[in-house]
Design a protein around this nucleic acid. Structure first.
Lengths: 123, 123
DNA sequence: TTAACTGTCAAGTATAATGTACACAGTGGT
DNA sequence: ACCACTGTGTACATTATACTTGACAGTTAA
């Protein structure tokens, strides 16, 4: 890899937005709360460095009040927890994911299947 | 990481089995066909080194005639292709996976959902 | 005007991941 | 006795990942 402007821009955008109402969202202070250096964050936001580790991206999402999975996706990563879930049922989950992809399921259609799990289980 | 006996044992087991009928499945020859050194494979099989890259595990699965996703899971990895699929619908897929996990869906139940995708799509 | 911020630049670092080359010892056949 | 093969131990090598330190210039507020 060699930097990711899409991810960086999004972080800067979210951080600047937060800062409108909370001045502690300066580059330095935000970096400190995430647990990385200001320099690193600066380069990441300008797409000069690769996004941080999944762990730190998740911290960013929490602080910024946004969805971690979307931020991770933007960074070209997946929550390690999801990989762990796949590993518990590798064949079945792999087949499910590939089939969903082949049929180009929309987010709504996937959400419908999620609801079905909850519904079937609750009775 | 620091070696993975479960993965190594499985590879050795599968390779030795193959060798019963095909003498080209010696450690050296198999390593060569996978594209790694015999030394490395030896250490991996004895759980002294970590499993190879996802790419090389997939090659092993092909040569050994076994399921790549299961081998990858044993190695503590996930096919990068699956991560890519998740990244295309991060929120929906993440929610699906977490819900399936929370409800402890069995492989069969997941397969049923996969069939449902195909069925609903075919009409 | 100086003090305290803001973000940025240049350079370097620590650790892990993913391997390699080469020499060696044991075994089985000829 | 020798050859060719088996797997293995020692000792690195290479690249990527995920950052850090310290110095700097511009802006803002007292």
């Amino acid at each position: 890899m060699a930097g990711n402007p899409a991810f960086g821009n999004r972080i800067r955008e979210l951080r600047e937005a937060k800062r409108q109402t909370d001045p502690t969202f300066s580059l330095r202070q935000f970096a400190q709360r995430v647990g990385i250096s200001a320099t690193f964050l600066s380069k990441v936001e300008r797409g000069e460095f690769d996004p941080p580790s999944a762990e730190n991206i998740i911290k960013m999402a929490e602080l910024l009040g946004t969805d971690a999975d979307e931020l991770l996706a933007l960074a070209g990563r997946v929550d390690p927890e999801l990989d762990e879930i796949i590993r518990q049922r590798p064949k079945a989950m792999a087949e499910f994911l590939r089939t969903a992809h082949q049929h180009q399921l929309t987010a709504d259609e996937i959400a419908e299947l999620t609801r079905r799990i909850r519904r079937d289980r609750q009775e």
